[in-house]
Amino acid sequence: MNPARPGAEKFDSPLLQLDKATLRFGGLAAVSDLDLSLGRNELVGLIGPNGAGKTSAFNLITGVYPPSGGSILFDGRPMANRKPHQIARAGIARTFQNIRLFASMTVFDNVRTAARLHCPRGVRNALWRGRSFRDGEKEISGQVMELLEIFQLGKFHAAAATSLSYGDQRRLEIIRALATKPKLLLLDEPAAGMNATEKAELMRLIQFIKDRFQVSILLVEHDMKVVMGICERIVVLDYGMKIAEGTPAEIRAHPKVIEAYLGD
């Protein structure tokens, strides 16, 4: 923050900044006084034992629950108390711990639904079906198929989303999130339920997404190998509080982290 150069802060300041963000359910603090910042095109891991508040932190950032205190800045704009769809519009996309695809739709439609975000065509357009409607639909279609092809799901575009294999469903969820053209992608335990080969592939995939789409990624993950393997920086939560932050090597040696995991 340099008051001498207003307007420049957009580039200097981190993409996402949580300042003492707190989420309380009744008397229980799921997240307390969390400071977290994420730079542009950075890949950060968020780890911690079960119930440490990782998913709660996601829900806080994406507006599923409004924060009970603190502030959340994204791209220099306050996000606290915005609705989830407004936050998505601002450029934050996410996946879910337990896959949440649109179950009645095809693979194509799942992605198409998300791709609409930046094509503001509505009721009148859909009813009139004029040229601009057709062009818009074609453009979205093209984008969706391109995305699906990038991730080798093009051949399944007409299949029901729920008919995909587990790993492909996880992949589809990531594609759907990318279709909103986010600046920040939140991945909630993408490796859950995967075997070693799939995990290795996932690590390559995350790296690929970061490079190709130039997004920042915040990754919640249980699997230490995955987190340590790809994250540039790691934040450790326990009981809703940040107990450590640093490079994978620093985290591995951090006494508090060891205690939190072993004392679990």
Partner: peptide, 22 residues
């Protein structure tokens, strides 16, 4: 229509739909 998939998305999973900007 692409717009109209939003109705189904809301029906299928409201939380996921709003996370996609709907």
């Amino acid at each position: 229509s692409t717009y109209g998939r939003g109705f189904l998305a809301v029906r299928d999973d409201e939380v996921a739909a709003s996370a996609m900007g709907i």
